[in-house]
Amino acid sequence: MKEEEKNTVNRAEEFLQVFKKGAEFTQELLKENERLRYQIFQLEEGSKKQSGPLSADAELLRRRVEELEQEKKEILERVLRVEEENDDFAQRYVEVETQNNMLANLYIASFQLHSTLDHREVLQIITEIVINLIGAEEFSVLVLDEKARKLQAVAAEGLELTEIPAVPVGEGIIGQAAKSGESYFIDHMEGYVRDLSNPLVCIPLKIKDHVIGVLVIYQLLSQKDRFADLDYELFTLLAGHAATAIFSSKLYSESERKLSTIQGFIDLMTK
């Protein structure tokens, strides 16, 4: 019995010893855990202290980048606007240049038409304008004979005057243009074959509403396939100014002739 009690005490002491060792080990583990936690805390604090200023710089940089991006966007928008304005200016410049050229041509044509009272010279100038400024190769100027009510060719280019038939007012395209005072333009220029009774263009030469003749175009220069805006302006100018120039030069040469006859008669009477 004693032996049994002794064994039990021994075993209890052994168990107590193991338990104590277990308790010591646990204490050590807790201490180690505490020490590691403290280290982690220190490391985190250190990291916070080091990373703090870096984040502020990064934030500043980020803001700057944003500002620059915004600036870039604004500059690009401005560049786009300036480019649009440039395009607009370039387009306007071309338009103004075209207008300038048109006005220059009209000025020269008008100036030349009224630069002389010589009937032949006036017809020559009309011919020059139609060739050089409009680009016609074959055309004629027909003047109205008020008594016969017929249009007679007085100037021609690319054709002989004798080739061009007289046209009664109201007859055919040319006669109708003279009667109505309305300009005529052929519908389709492609494939057109020259026809004296079916021309490309008829422009009545008018002083106010009074038609004194017609400019008839049969053929354009080979390099000219259509009429430009300037041509229509020139047609309008010719319609009025050429008519006035033809009419006044005709009146002037008639009065000159009469004056010369009267002078001759006076000279004869007084000698």
Binding site: F111, E128, I129, I131, N132, L133
Partner: peptide
């Protein structure tokens, strides 16, 4: 030779 054309060229 054309005074009109000459004027136009000179004017330009």
């Amino acid at each position: 030779d054309s005074p009109t054309m000459r004027q136009l060229i000179v004017f330009a």
